[in-house]
Design a protein around this nucleic acid. Structure first.
Lengths: 160, 160
DNA sequence: ATCATTGCAAACTGTTTGCATCAAG
DNA sequence: CTTGATGCAAACAGTTTGCAATGAT
């Protein structure tokens, strides 16, 4: 579970039915898009991508299915630093690398001594509060500029 | 700048006027709330807090001022993992400790070898992509359970 | 045949905007 | 007095929901 890989139609059907859901065309198309591209789509972006493929797609059906699929754990939902809700097919714990320019986001693992990273109160008078928090999870968001935006920027700088 | 401390009215006025803005009552009340409490309020929560203090407060004025104050750098805006927009008075770079139960969020610094934390592609076929990202920022979100929720949970467990 | 799913339209929530009034400088 | 700020109401964007029609088992 949580391992992403491009799937054929039968595999998708199986995944969905394992969750006691009907393997409808809408659900297959959504899962296929997320599994194949590994992108972190906003609902709006997904709608565009799904419609480009030819067939129409109802926005209500999209939202209904994104909720249901996230609920049963076939996809995961989160909110990016830009405030946009996004979905991806990677339900295993992971970290994110985010482009500050376009908001694009890819999954990464991190290497390094994470266990040694510890919180510390920022203000003297909060010192006693911190130890009482039970901290059991860490999510790292690396920020930078993606290859595409770097290219676009240097192209525009060169042209201007 | 970016250092939080409780301020008196004159100091607030000065801070605001340094940014070429008029030090109106609405702005002072907003800044005072954020600076005094250090909480990470949603607009809705702020509205409630501001109105409890007695006087009414227009929701349009709140939003208008939150935008403006964030724009000039007197406060900072961000979106929590629960998707709620929040504001705080700490404009210096910092990390967050978030309660998984109630969503409460406090600022923390972290200790540990952060420089050694490096991204690594999750999928073999993405390996060549990663090095082309320019990574220059890291934001760490520690998740756990705040003291209040811990207390409430053990109280409920004991009572049930 | 049965019951989940679809998809339109209407409802809802959080946020922004137009604009007349008001108040800070 | 001048210009920016306020605050109502209307507009808006993203998301959810009611419900009749449709489709999967």
């Amino acid at each position: 579970m949580g391992v992403i890989m491009a799937c054929n139609h039968e595999q998708l059907t199986q995944l969905i039915e394992q969750k006691q859901l009907r393997a409808t065309e809408a659900r297959c198309r959504i899962l296929e898009l997320l599994y194949d591209t590994r992108e972190h789509y906003t609902p709006e972006e997904m709608l565009e991508a799904l419609r480009e493929h030819g067939k129409p797609f109802s926005i209500a059906t999209l939202y209904q299915n994104l909720s249901k699929l996230a609920e049963v754990g076939l996809i995961s939902r989160f909110v990016g630093p830009d405030g946009q809700t996004r979905y991806d097919a990677n339900t295993a714990p992971h970290h994110h690398l985010v482009c500050k320019i376009c908001g694009r986001m890819i999954d990464v693992d991190v290497e390094g001594p994470l266990e040694e990273v510890r919180p510390r109160a920022l203000f003297a008078d909060e010192e006693p509060v911190l130890p009482e928090w039970k901290v059991d999870d860490i999510h790292i968001e690396l920020q930078g500029v993606c290859p595409d935006c770097q290219a676009r920027i240097s192209r525009e700088a060169g042209g201007a």
